Simulated assay, not measured.
Amino acid sequence: MSAITRDEVAHLARLSRLALAEDELDHYAAQLDDIIAAVARVAEVATDDIPPSSHALPLTNVYRPDEPRPGLAPHDALAAAPAVEDDRFRVPRILGEEA
C-alpha cells in the first residue's frame, strides 16, 4: 500500500500549479514514497549523543579591526587611467542617451 495516494499527489500538483497527466500521478506517488522512506531512514539514525552543529569543525570568523585609513588621492587613482575628464575616469558612451 502506498503511503502517498494519487489524490494527495493531485492535491499537491494543484497547490503547485502543475498540470499532471493521470499516469504521472501514479509515477510521482511512487517517487514520493521512496523519498519519504529515505527521509525516515535518516531520522532513524541514533543522534542522541551528538550535539547539533552546522559544520563538522568549529568555525571562528577572523576579521581585521575596522579602522579608517586614508584612501587614494584623486590624482593617484587617475594616474594610470587611459582617459580622464574633470577628475573622473572617461569611458566610452554605451547608451545613446544625452548626459
Rank of each mutant, 00 (worst) to 15 (best):
L57I: 10
R14C: 02
L32M: 10
N61A: 15
D7R: 11
V84F: 01
A29I: 12
R17I: 01
H55P: 00
H27W: 12
E22I: 08
L59P: 01
D76P: 00
R14L: 05
L20P: 00
A10F: 02
L57V: 04
A3F: 01
T47H: 10
S53D: 09
A79Q: 04
S54A: 14
T5I: 15
R17S: 13
L78M: 02
S53Q: 12
A79I: 01
A13Q: 07
V39M: 04
G96Q: 15
G71V: 03
A79K: 06
T60K: 13
E67H: 04
A83C: 08
M1I: 02
A40D: 05
R90T: 02
A80T: 09
D7T: 12
E97Y: 14
E24S: 14
E85I: 04
V84Q: 03
V39N: 01
H75M: 00
R93D: 13
L32K: 05
G96A: 15
N61P: 13
P68M: 04
A77P: 04
G71W: 11
S54C: 06
S16K: 04
L59H: 08
P70L: 03
A46C: 12
M1N: 10
A56P: 07
R14E: 10
D76V: 04
T5S: 15
A21Q: 14
V42I: 01
P68Y: 02
A83F: 12
A56K: 10
L78A: 00
A83P: 06
V84Y: 01
Q31V: 08
D86H: 00
R93H: 09
I4Q: 07
V62H: 08
V9K: 14
A43E: 03
P52G: 01
A56D: 11
A19Y: 14
P74I: 00
I4H: 09
